[in-house]
Amino acid sequence: MPLTKRIIPCLDVRDGTVVKGVCFKNLQSVGDPPTLAVAYQEQGADEIVFLDVKATVAGAATLRSAVKKTAENLFIPLTVGGGTRSFEDVRETLKAGADKVSVNTAAVENPEMITECADAFGSQCVVVAIDAKRDNDSWEVYTYSGTRPTGRDAVEWAKEVCDRGAGEILLTSMDADGTKAGYDIELTRTIVRATNVPVIASGGCGTIEHIVEVLTRGEADAALAASIFHYGQHTVADVKEALRAKGVPVRESVAE
């Protein structure tokens, strides 16, 4: 069996609580990060992504304490992103218990940082998050939580971050995010085919079928989803059962 496709519940954290919003707006609280992370681990999640959606300099210490608590009882990988501005931030976040750190705005503004982090910590813990929005026949990279267009082409940027040593791409379609209408299959497949690192697809998941679709037609290595898990609509185990039925390789959950 090849490497299994990963199912990654995402915790969007604001002021220490997990929130869910539509298109980066109208956020609602759904629970605390350590409790949700452990619940998803028990459901068979392959990894947890923890994103600080209102990252501020003053909030850095608070964030690290939340990361530490979240990591405490996790025996699966934890990726942390949001507000990571510098090499030192990456080091501190790893020290707090993250296995990988996702960098978005800082990578665009200072691409050398990707290489510095990859050289020091290894490519496997450097995730570059790309927020992409369709612009006619291409996609543009946005920074600052999707508020600022950069003029960069998402496909070119994805190739560049690989060359600079990123170990993984967390790709969010801003058009699809929060709509629950499905992942952007075309964007995902385009980025997967243009790059040579694993790609996590994000944005738009509303049903189990959407996950199946992005991992098959979309060719993604992993699917990230939030609301379908947060509201108890489905468990990670439900998703894996559906994937297995379609012949998609997924990790077997093994009881202790």
Binding site: L3, G167, E168, P198
Partner: peptide, 11 residues
């Protein structure tokens, strides 16, 4: 392998 790092759960 074309896609590296190997990242994820394997047999």
């Amino acid at each position: 392998s074309r896609r590296i790092p190997q990242m994820g759960w394997n047999d």
